[in-house]
Amino acid sequence: MKPSPFEYVAPTSMEEALAVLAGDPDETKVLAGGQSLVPMMNFRLARPERLVDINRIPGIAGTDVVADRLVIRTRTRHLALQNTSLPGPLGHLLRHAAAKVGHLPIRTRGTFGGSLAHCDAASEWCLVASLLDADITAESQARGSRTIAAADFFRSIFTTALEPDEILTSVSLPLLDDSWTAGIAEFARRAGDFGIVTATAAVQVVDGTVTEARVSLGGVGEVPFRSVAAESTMRGEAWTTDLITAAAQAAAEEVDPPSDIHGDAAYRRDLVRALLPRALGRP
């Protein structure tokens, strides 16, 4: 359980980091929190020849409100988001999602950007990004900065739209006003484990009617699954318990989940049915 040898570079600027990456993109991995990468290296499931450690680069952690969006810089630790004082439904969602990321000693180290770049289908942050149609900004030395829509970002298990020479630098999420309700419900075998199924949802209700609905599900496919069926079931309808039940049923019928030792497809559908209402709370 010791990693393969690698070369280690710890630049103090993003430009320098991008230059290292550009030098040998296929054999270089970005080391952020390392809470997913290092276990894989210890198991020798990942054997990068070079690590570029972004922990010594100043100014790439923290959050800013820019107009009507929240910008989360890449190296923002999970714990910082768990402790965010951001008001409103988005702050609520971020605090609750962060609290479900591993355990305290993982949250002190692991990062928001790292989670997205790692792209585990059960990751809370991938679900939040998917749910809220995040804009994900990446930079490379060759092509500069570009913004990728969440819908285009998550490609398959452990695979994103990031090019090998790119570093994810920030993510922006829409601030949700108080007409929104947003939540997350996760079913994990033990405290701190990855969810078998995780449901995230955000609905906008105006005068008792759902004007906008978003549902993203984890653990039912290779990447976060936006449930079009659940969203369209709710949109334009009266915000009631029955509606939520109907949406959960629609989502459960829509997903085509995998089977593993923690549950088969039928069980994951059951969990979708159970968890979506818990993510949304009561009307």
């Binding site: 079913f187 075998r189 078998i196 923690h262 549950g263 088969d264 039928a266 069980y267 059951d270």
Partner: peptide, 8 residues
Amino acid sequence: ATPHRVRA
């Protein structure tokens, strides 16, 4: 008696 077995 894991959750998926109980649920099944």
